[in-house]
Design a protein around this nucleic acid. Structure first.
Lengths: 316, 316
DNA sequence: CAGTTAATATAACTCTATGATATGAAAATT
DNA sequence: AATTTTCATATCATAGAGTTATATTAACTG
């Protein structure tokens, strides 16, 4: 015997509300509607659900048994509605994000942590890559959102993008570095220290060459290359090496007292940090919410950077 | 967001069956039907449930969440159907039965025990009473079925009844009783022993007087009166008292070695043991099944009684 | 890389179930 | 007995769900 889940739901509503009319309004239906529903159910079951001719409607034992299941159904339906609303509001779901390693580790990871605090039901899958790879992953549908520094003109066709931070590179070193205590840094001072080169293929590597060229340094010694942000930081802390990093990364990591920026004005790279996604694909709510969250974080970050950078870094 | 439980059920069926067409047949619907249902659901939710343009239908994470609830709903619905079928088949539910104490304790209780073994989900409420009280309880709807000895003509109006056993009383005593070893019992022997009188008001009490009168005994000494079957049996076992009991009771209790019937032929009472119920009230399946079960048991019992009684009791 | 196959989507139409309002009937209460 | 409360019934409109037939399209195959 197949019983319509809706009917069971109505049944439980009647029992719980303690009356046919009350039950009807509990499920947003009219009293005649549920009355007929019950009558049909009784006919199909071949058994009474309520004792005949008793005015405070008295449920049969079968009725109570079925109402029990109805309650389960109501709950499940409610849960489903909640889940859908949650999902549509971006409060649950999955966001798959990828970006260049230094930014992901140095900036985004912090923001992901606070996002997770606010939206614990959103699962974030993080991975790394540079522009060509990121574009490919987006095309394959393996990730939802990419974050990387790129020239607007270089954005491949078919992608939507949104700039979130202007590129601003600085020369970074350990706070204990001899140059870090000087109020102004001369180019000749810089030239004598070894350099940590970012991973080959990363935009930062090109930035390093460009930035040094802009201040007249064309010949420099590389003491360490490759590695993640964590290894760069470690090497920097234990040596007198210098490197070029986005100021946003230095800023976010400054609390760790492992890195500081030298007051040297480099020419800014012509790239911007942008969000990239496929414009033809629907954006899942969780991804949308995650992106909006990051945009907000980056907005605040950009202000802080402008403020502090002007006084502490670009004063020269 | 309110979601139709049926849709969730369909969703889970699709997931579990591993395809839209398979899912459709799993819920006894056509493929286009469920296809459209899914399309409508997606429209209402404003989110995809299956990834677009993938042929082995690939469910979205939201879809899986909702399908989970759908599975719960399917299960509940199934349970309800089972419960209804069980109930309609009389395999679950409640049967409220009442009868005269001696019969209930001496005969029915055994049958109830085996019935419970066969139908453990049927709840039996048992109570005691004599005809006037039983009729009242039936009228009030407090019990579903009464069992008591009654003359057909005495059945009150509005009641249906079904005879299940002809009245056959015997003189009962302990197996250790001096008379129990005699192959034929003379009236003068009987006259010298004390009697246990059944509860006043019970049909058996009248039977006792009538039975003894039929064999010429009008003056007898009552050593014990009232009490339940258990107390009568106890008193009988510890004394040389005699009593009158329905042979069915003696027969059913004979395994206990506490009681036996004397080979004395009493005139049978003009009452029969009958089922009584209100003919205007619907009979719940559990009650129906219980009554049918008892009828079967009594049919077998009647045969055994005829057989054994003829050789062991009424041989005189 | 056509061509085939299998699976899903769409179209067109029917019909049942459900919705609402108005109203009748009956139990419970006063 | 009158009144109130509560449930049942009648009638009609309509959305949803069912069907079959057919178009589309992803995946497979040689």
């Amino acid at each position: 015997m197949k019983i319509d889940p809706n009917h069971l739901h109505i049944l439980s509503a009647i029992i719980d509300a303690g009356g046919l009319s009350e039950g009807a309004s509990a499920v947003n239906k009219s009293q005649p509607s549920v009355s007929r529903t019950i009558a049909m159910l009784e006919a199909r079951l071949g058994a009474r659900l309520f004792e005949k001719g008793r005015r405070p409607l008295r449920p049969t034992e079968l009725c109570l048994t079925l109402a029990e299941q109805g309650r389960i159904i109501a709950q499940a339906s409610e849960n489903a509605g909640q889940a859908a609303a949650h999902y549509s509001g971006g409060k649950s779901g999955t966001a798959r994000i990828a970006g260049t390693p230094i930014f992901m580790d140095g900036v985004i990871s912090n923001m992901m942590a606070s996002f997770q605090g606010a939206f614990p039901d959103v699962t974030i899958h993080q991975s790394y890559g540079y522009l060509p790879d990121l574009a490919e992953q987006l095309n394959a549908g393996n990730i939802d959102l990419a974050i990387c520094p790129v020239r607007s003109a270089d954005v491949p066709a078919g992608f939507a993008f949104k700039p979130i931070l202007r590129g601003r590179n600085v020369i970074a070193c350990a706070p204990s570095h001899p140059l870090a205590r000087m109020s102004s840094v001369k180019l000749t001072d810089i030239a004598s220290y070894p350099w940590i080169a970012p991973p080959a293929g990363s935009p930062l590597y090109a930035d390093l060459r460009g930035a040094l060229a802009s201040i007249g340094i064309t010949d420099f010694r590389v003491s360490f290359t490759g590695g993640s942000l964590a290894s760069i930081m470690s090497v920097m802390a234990g040596s007198e090496s210098l490197t070029v990093l986005p100021y946003s990364v230095v800023f976010m990591q400054s609390h760790s007292k492992l890195v500081t920026a030298l007051p040297v004005k480099l020419t800014h790279p012509d790239r911007e940090l942008v969000f990239l996604w496929r414009e033809d694909r629907p954006v899942r709510p969780a991804v949308q919410r995650f992106r909006k969250y990051l945009e907000g974080e980056f907005f605040g970050l950009a202000n802080h950077i402008e403020q502090k950078g002007r006084t502490a870094v670009w004063r020269g």
